[in-house]
Amino acid sequence: RVRTAQAAADREQKVAARSHAPAFDEVAEQVEGRLEREQVRRCLDSLTGLQRESVTLAYYRGYTYPEVAEVLGTPLGTVKTRMR
């Protein structure tokens, strides 16, 4: 009985150890998100106005490349070049 009880306790400990998730650090997540947003802003600021407008339409407003080309009145190839 002692060995059976010990084996059951060992199994429970193994299962508990495998299912243990690390603690979520909300403050660290907020800081990381803020730093990423600042980095994106700096990168956008380094683009030309035409490039920034194309990227903003595609990534922040959800337009496809052909839609961006139509909105801006430019050829699709030009939009693709600006996006690259």
Rank of each mutant, 00 (worst) to 15 (best):
residue 2 V to S: 11
residue 3 R to N: 12
residue 5 A to I: 07
residue 8 A to S: 13
residue 9 A to G: 06
residue 9 A to S: 11
residue 9 A to W: 09
residue 10 D to N: 13
residue 11 R to K: 11
residue 11 R to C: 09
residue 12 E to V: 09
residue 12 E to K: 08
residue 12 E to L: 09
residue 13 Q to L: 15
residue 13 Q to G: 12
residue 13 Q to A: 14
residue 14 K to C: 08
residue 16 A to H: 14
residue 16 A to N: 14
residue 18 R to Y: 08
residue 18 R to W: 09
residue 19 S to L: 13
residue 19 S to A: 12
residue 20 H to D: 13
residue 20 H to E: 15
residue 20 H to I: 07
residue 22 P to Y: 06
residue 23 A to N: 03
residue 23 A to F: 02
residue 24 F to A: 08
residue 25 D to G: 01
residue 25 D to E: 05
residue 25 D to T: 01
residue 25 D to A: 02
residue 26 E to Y: 08
residue 26 E to I: 09
residue 28 A to L: 11
residue 29 E to C: 12
residue 29 E to M: 15
residue 30 Q to W: 06
residue 31 V to M: 14
residue 31 V to N: 15
residue 31 V to D: 12
residue 32 E to Y: 06
residue 33 G to K: 10
residue 34 R to P: 00
residue 34 R to M: 07
residue 35 L to M: 12
residue 36 E to F: 13
residue 37 R to L: 08
residue 37 R to N: 09
residue 37 R to W: 07
residue 39 Q to A: 14
residue 39 Q to Y: 10
residue 40 V to K: 15
residue 40 V to P: 02
residue 40 V to E: 15
residue 40 V to T: 15
residue 41 R to M: 07
residue 42 R to V: 11
residue 43 C to I: 06
residue 43 C to E: 12
residue 43 C to H: 10
residue 45 D to C: 05
residue 46 S to L: 08
residue 46 S to A: 09
residue 46 S to V: 00
residue 46 S to R: 07
residue 48 T to G: 10
residue 49 G to Q: 05
residue 49 G to Y: 03
residue 52 R to C: 00
residue 52 R to L: 05
residue 54 S to A: 15
residue 54 S to E: 00
residue 55 V to N: 00
residue 56 T to K: 01
residue 57 L to K: 01
residue 57 L to N: 00
residue 58 A to L: 08
residue 58 A to R: 14
residue 58 A to C: 06
residue 58 A to E: 04
residue 59 Y to S: 10
residue 59 Y to I: 03
residue 60 Y to L: 02
residue 61 R to D: 05
residue 61 R to W: 01
residue 63 Y to F: 11
residue 63 Y to M: 05
residue 63 Y to L: 11
residue 64 T to I: 04
residue 65 Y to F: 10
residue 66 P to N: 05
residue 66 P to M: 09
residue 67 E to R: 05
residue 68 V to F: 01
residue 68 V to C: 14
residue 69 A to M: 03
residue 69 A to Q: 01
residue 70 E to F: 02
residue 71 V to D: 02
residue 72 L to R: 15
residue 72 L to W: 00
residue 73 G to E: 04
residue 74 T to P: 00
residue 74 T to I: 13
residue 76 L to V: 15
residue 77 G to T: 07
residue 77 G to M: 06
residue 77 G to W: 03
residue 78 T to P: 03
residue 78 T to C: 05
residue 79 V to L: 03
residue 81 T to K: 12
residue 81 T to G: 06
residue 82 R to A: 02
residue 83 M to G: 00
residue 84 R to N: 14
residue 84 R to A: 11
